[in-house]
Write a protein that binds this DNA or RNA. Structure first.
Lengths: 230, 230
DNA sequence: TTCGGTCAAGTGGTACGACCAATCTGCCTG
DNA sequence: CAGGCAGATTGGTCGTACCACTTGACCGAA
């Protein structure tokens, strides 16, 4: 029965400290904090490193250690590693992404503030004005990013942010390898517009359906390399 | 432009090593590995600690450091901390949970293997036979756990596992405080049975709807303390 | 032979102390 | 007042020593 490698007395003490201090607050210097907690600087730094990795602490040499809002970079790194080590498949990750995006579409339609929804429209306009495949990719990325942040849902954006970069890189890599799928602008715009219109109409169910349709098309294109129709 | 606190040359070297060695493999001893990578044991341990926190490494004193399948404990810890530090709300976390569970329901209905689905049925039967509120809770927990694992989707179970414990604790705590919501057995069973039947029928859409209904009821009960009906 | 304990080597965990590198502060200079 | 320079502060790395736990080999008794 091994002890939890991530939760012990020292970690709990630090967790409590983080809870007390607010977001953005600075922790005492390591040397001082170590003495106060009755532990060596080595052991303290070990736990601080963990919390930094989780994205709840930010350390800057010469400055100090600060409490920050939960950041997704650590999770993103872990997912990337797990993906490349074959502990996770692109398909399973994508499945999670689809689920989150549908939820985001529904919440954005229900309670998204107009300004944030306008950003979604802006991304769609950029997509229509895109000149290169890279431009389309960027607009596509911005569209989904704007949709997620329109929900104002911190957990949703946290998870989605962690996955977005990983999937984006993995998909582009696979697409380059297959040489197909040339990112037709009209197709891309057509795939995103219904969702945006559902947001404007504040129609939660329509937004959910549009999201499902969007990813269904994406999935079909991705898994069926052939371009012709019977 | 601060350097990424989670990805540097040393971390990348370790990532590569983890990719090469398979799951379950043992890494070289820290002293040896540090020398081979031309770095002190301190710096090496710093990065190993990160990877252990992310759940891709497991270290056992006296034994060694091993590559393991991505484990959710670190993420769970981070979510728990973010929740108690008010960087994340229960509602937003629950929203993610709902999205994942619906996706799981659909995938389990589509491709879940019969044995795994039988485990879902077993949990439902346990719920019907439950004698205490705790028994109901346990069966409830097992039901959703079985559903998730029936998908065979690693990413889905990873995220869901990380959230389950956090939400379970948070909800029970809130429920205890409110003193309402006495966990009626008939209600619980009725809330879960349609989903199980959709799985048996391999009806993906029905499973998705049943999941939505389940959590809608859950949400209503949770946010509306009053028990009477108009 | 088989079981049990003992012991030594190996491995991760912690502790100090020293120094390096980036940052911040405040004083000084122009 | 503006700019820069120097010292103090703070996180990052290093090396060494020692502790705690695991493992496996060895030995002796049943």
């Amino acid at each position: 029965m091994a002890a939890d490698p991530v939760s012990d007395a020292l970690s709990d003490a630090l967790s409590g400290l983080i809870r007390e201090l607010g977001e953005g607050a600075r922790l005492p210097p390591e040397r001082e904090l170590a003495e106060r907690l009755g532990v060596s600087r080595t052991a303290l730094r070990d736990r601080l490193r963990l919390l930094e990795g989780f994205g709840v602490l930010s350390r800057r040499q010469g400055s100090g250690t600060y409490v920050q809002r939960l950041a997704p970079h650590g999770l993103e790194f872990a997912l990337d590693l797990a993906l490349s080590a074959s502990h996770l498949s692109i398909e399973s990750l994508h499945s999670v992404r689809v689920a989150l995006e549908r939820q985001a579409a529904r919440e954005a339609a229900r309670k998204g503030d107009p300004v944030a929804i306008a950003h979604v429209g802006k991304a769609l306009a950029d997509m229509e004005a895109a000149a290169t495949a890279d431009d389309i990719d960027r607009a596509d990325f911005a569209f989904h990013q704007a949709l997620l942040h329109a929900t104002g849902n911190a957990a949703l954006t946290f998870f989605a942010d962690a996955m977005t970069g990983v999937l984006f890189r993995a998909v582009r890599q696979r697409r380059d390898r297959l040489k197909n799928h040339p990112r037709d602008k009209e197709v891309s715009v057509a795939a995103h517009r219904p969702l945006y219109e559902a947001l404007l109409a504040r129609d939660e169910d329509a937004a959910g359906r549009a999201s499902d349709d969007h990813f269904r098309a994406w999935h079909d294109l991705f898994t069926e390399p052939r371009m012709e129709r019977p």
